[in-house]
Nucleic acid binder design. Structure first.
Length: 296
DNA sequence: CCTTGAACCTGGGCGC
DNA sequence: TGCGCCCAGGTTCAAG
């Protein structure tokens, strides 16, 4: 569950358990995810205390007190769950129901806290996720972070910034917004939703959002606002839970109930007075959902 | 430079 | 019940 709001929700769900905990043992149940796990991974983190959990774009960062940081990306199907001692004693169906999936439990953080022990388990059926390890100094020049654009919430994402990125480019809006170098953290769902909210077509060329003088047109201001708002709304809702994906704290995000375009092919457009129908097209191999009537 | 398409994986849903 | 096909929240790399 991997766009920015989902990763932020994971971070918030894991923080109370992980922050301040002693990382007693790191159990690696396979040598690789998408990439080989770091060399001596377990030896380099075991016995350290976790200082803080943070996030950059879709990356979860686990900062250890000795200055090392575990970098985790959830890919398409990665998730974390927490098991505390109390849960272990819970009998019955709950465990059986979950056991089917246990073959995809790839990395287990065994934690020690004042109130007892807990496990944080990384599960990822498709294994598009990965984990890496970096020191504080390496983090600043970490390849995956170096070229990332600004976070979609905050002051750095502005219409003026986007105008600079869009000027003279012929890309469609959809692919520009999916580009992590333009904005870091958006994915297929929230790009569709932001475009629907701002009544902009995913196929529109980005250069048409900018005046000849290089200034943002009014609709580009609208787009920047829509992006900030949809991400903020989704974080407040605890992200989107597709296919019964549960969050780390066991609860479900509910932003999927707020989808206005994503996954709504054939349904009526929800723009006031529009009367159009949401359709699905494919852009560079990925589904785009939008209303041709009101998104121009 | 640009864009598209395939690749990396597994599982769920659907039609036959 | 099973098989084959399509689809899935991401990223990267090759080819045109």
């Amino acid at each position: 569950m991997p766009e920015l709001p989902e990763v932020e929700t994971v971070r918030r769900g894991l923080a109370p358990t992980m922050e301040g905990a002693l990382l007693q043992r790191l159990e690696l149940r396979r040598p690789d995810l998408r990439f080989p796990l770091p060399r001596d991974f377990a030896a380099r983190v075991e016995g350290r205390r976790i200082a803080a959990l943070s996030r950059r774009a879709k990356y979860l960062l686990i900062d250890l007190e000795d200055g090392a940081t575990v970098i985790a990306h959830l890919g398409m199907s990665g998730s974390f769950r927490i098991e505390a001692d109390a849960i272990e004693a819970t009998p019955g169906a709950f465990h059986h129901e979950r056991s089917k999936d246990e073959k995809h439990d790839h990395v287990i953080f065994h934690l020690q806290r004042p109130e007892g022990s807990a496990r944080v388990i990384y599960n990822d059926p498709r294994r598009f996720g990965f984990m890496d390890l970096a020191t504080r100094a390496q983090l600043d020049i970490y390849p995956a972070f170096r070229d990332l654009g600004p976070e979609p919430v905050g002051n750095l994402l502005s219409a003026d910034y986007l105008a600079g990125r869009f000027l003279g480019r012929s890309q469609p809006l959809k692919s520009a917004l999916l580009d992590q170098k333009v904005i870091a953290g958006l994915g297929n769902i929230y790009v569709c939703e932001a475009l629907w909210r701002s009544h902009l077509s995913p196929t529109r060329k980005v250069s048409t959002m900018v005046t000849k003088a290089g200034k943002p047109k009014p609709e580009l201001h609208l787009l920047a606002d829509s992006i900030r708002e949809v991400i903020a709304d989704a974080i407040l809702a605890g992200g989107s839970s597709l296919r019964d994906h549960i969050q780390a704290d066991g609860t479900l995000g509910y932003f999927q109930h707020s989808f206005r375009a994503y996954n709504r092919e054939g349904h009526a457009c929800l723009t006031e007075g529009c009367g159009g129908t949401v359709e699905r097209i494919v852009q560079s191999g990925r589904s785009t959902f939008y209303c041709q009537r009101c998104q121009k």
